[in-house]
Nucleic acid binder design. Structure first.
Lengths: 359, 359
DNA sequence: TCTCTTTATGTAACTAGTTACATCACTCTT
DNA sequence: AAGAGTGATGTAACTAGTTACATAAAGAGA
């Protein structure tokens, strides 16, 4: 093991060196090579090796080749921890998402990740289960392992998280949500507008009796914003609300509830595509034709929604571009310190086969 | 900023200290507090602060309280990088998965993550797009940022990755695959058995003319293993193979191909549930009844497969228990150095409504 | 009272990198 | 030929923690 000699004076011959002698077995268990090993092997100083990594042009070609040969021979890779301790850079950011079980987050993350990779950043994903306490907890963990920035989904409910972000001055972008006045930059779509588009489509087709199926309101600002968007409906419209777990199973159960009502609606608006998928299959199971007997509509536009039978009419949320934009914005913030401006992506109607005009 | 005095001898008064004086503005821009700041605030040495973290019982109650108060006051959190540099511990592991777009990996990861959290480990997810070169690349990145272990999906094709794992002696578990003789411990299900179960079910129902829809063979050992499992079919059975992209869209397209053949099979076996979902909807779109005209079967048992219409008969793969088991095994390996034994999870038939007996 | 522990705490070496500054060998001026 | 400028390289201080060892004080046994 390496042993540097720091104390050259002999007036106070402070304890010279630990005796590692007993555990010395340099033969094969040489562990991972470090920068000093490389320097020794190449016959140069540690600074020169470091320069080969960080400023190659300041090192002569000859020396550089020697050092590079030594690096290869020892299979040396710089330790991120040691580098982080100096530069404060870890080159990764953390994303906090409620779940991976919903394809919408999976899609978003895959675009976020590739976008970040383009900027030389890695992505660490943590799931929160939608619990703000867990979110704060995981944010701490991410910070502890060295994350340089955060990507959040929706506006957090826990003030402790905002406090942490503020105190640590850590670059943080909020996605899946748009609010230009929020303390943190939001890069996302307007959830209220998405549901407004959906409702307008159904009302435009003549539907006036609409069942609305949605996921849990509590702790989910996206769901709440979507519900809010329905506030301003046609004066003759009657909306009935059904809350259910956010899964296809939940969609089935809610649809079953809808059918048990005395008065059957002409359309079901699901505030999430997974709910719509469940609802449609339940309707079919009970012999109700979609869209002949009841129109069904979703919001999200999952990749699989297009290939359902019938193909699901839904509101397309540009999660892919949102992921890329969030990656670019966060990279800029982390690298250059430029806090990005909020950015809004417009939802769009994806008209397919699961809704139809009624008299 | 803190300034240690290391050189006590005055014979060689080596350059005393850098002059940071100019940038001194300790008032508000005090950045993140470090251990020395805490020690100073508490009026103790750095070692004592460190002990409060790592061996609280060796510190007197009184001192401990003082230190804890200082930690809180300065909102100090230990730097993972600095800790890692000493202990070599970063407390996170990396998972390399082909994609997040397939619910099967999302489910696996969510269980893997919660399992690891129980052991005090965090999970970093990297997607490879199924490309072995990218996988090796990302493994390097993970290692560089300090990952202590890997979870791979399927047997990698790139020898460079195995070489890296071997050289770095990094704890690595292979999942979604079972082979007790592989160099690395595999914790997963037998993919060949899964397809064998599926085929046996269809043949048991009297199907002899079966179309097999599967994802890309190249670079995907799971698909290959599943195809292999079909080798040993009933002597009278005729299997026709259709390769297509692994998505619901791919499933639709392949089903369309099947229907274009002169001779229509009595059953379609999809080697993945997403393909089955696409295939079923395409059949319905073309007016073919499932299971009345054609039986459709999948493999995976995604959460949504149960709520398709008709409910998909498939082979259940225990990804949840696999995730938990992989987490436990990897934690044990990382923490205690105990290399785990391979572990096999049995796939099971999930009999539902999309298949039926034929004469 | 003098050692002999035990307990609590401090000092400084240590981890693996980066980097400010020093130094040396050159070449280019004048 | 002296001085200045340039390029390449080395020395050791520096980052934020952990930890071996030293040491101080207090209580126990002789």
């Amino acid at each position: 093991m390496y042993k540097p000699f720091r104390y050259l004076c002999d007036i106070h011959p402070i304890r010279a060196a630990k005796k590692h002698a007993g555990t010395m077995s340099q033969d094969h268990s040489k562990k991972r090579a470090n920068l000093r090993d490389v320097a020794k092997a190449a016959g140069v100083s540690v600074a020169t090796v470091s320069r080969v990594m960080n400023a190659p042009k300041t090192v002569s070609q000859q020396t550089r080749e020697k050092v590079e040969a030594a690096m290869t021979a020892l299979r040396w890779r710089p330790s991120a921890a040691a580098r982080a301790i100096n530069s404060g850079r870890s080159r990764f950011v953390g994303a906090l998402v409620p779940t991976l079980d919903n394809a919408i987050f999976a899609r978003f993350l895959s675009h976020l990740e590739s976008g970040l990779n383009l900027h030389g950043l890695s992505l660490v994903v943590a799931t929160t289960g939608g619990d703000p306490k867990v979110e704060t907890e995981k944010a701490h963990t991410l910070l502890d392992i060295g994350a340089e920035g955060f990507v959040l989904s929706g506006i957090s409910q826990d003030p402790a998280l905002l406090d942490l972000i503020d105190h640590m001055q850590i670059a943080t972008i909020v996605t899946s949500f748009f609010d230009p006045n929020y303390v943190l930059p939001t890069i996302g779509y307007d959830n209220a507008e998405a549901s407004r588009i959906a409702l307008a489509h159904l009302e435009g087709q003549g539907h006036r009796d609409i069942a609305v199926i949605h996921g849990p309101k509590s702790l989910n600002d996206r769901t709440r914003a979507r519900l809010q968007g329905l506030g301003d409906h046609h004066p003759d419209s009657a909306l009935t609300f059904y809350e259910t777990p956010l899964s296809t199973r939940g969609g089935c159960d809610a649809a079953d509830m809808v059918l048990q009502q005395a008065r059957r609606p002409t359309a079901i608006l699901c505030l999430s595509d997974v709910l719509a998928a469940g609802a449609m299959s339940e309707l079919q199971r009970q012999g109700i034709g979609v869209p002949d007997d009841i129109s069904v509509m979703g919001i999200d536009d999952l990749p699989s929604s297009e290939t359902l039978y019938p193909a699901l009419t839904t509101v397309h949320l540009p999660v892919a571009s949102m992921g890329t934009a969030a990656a670019d914005a966060l990279a800029l913030w982390v690298e250059k310190g430029e806090k990005p401006a909020p950015r809004r992506f417009g939802p769009e109607l994806a008209l397919r086969a699961s809704t139809r005009r009624v008299s």
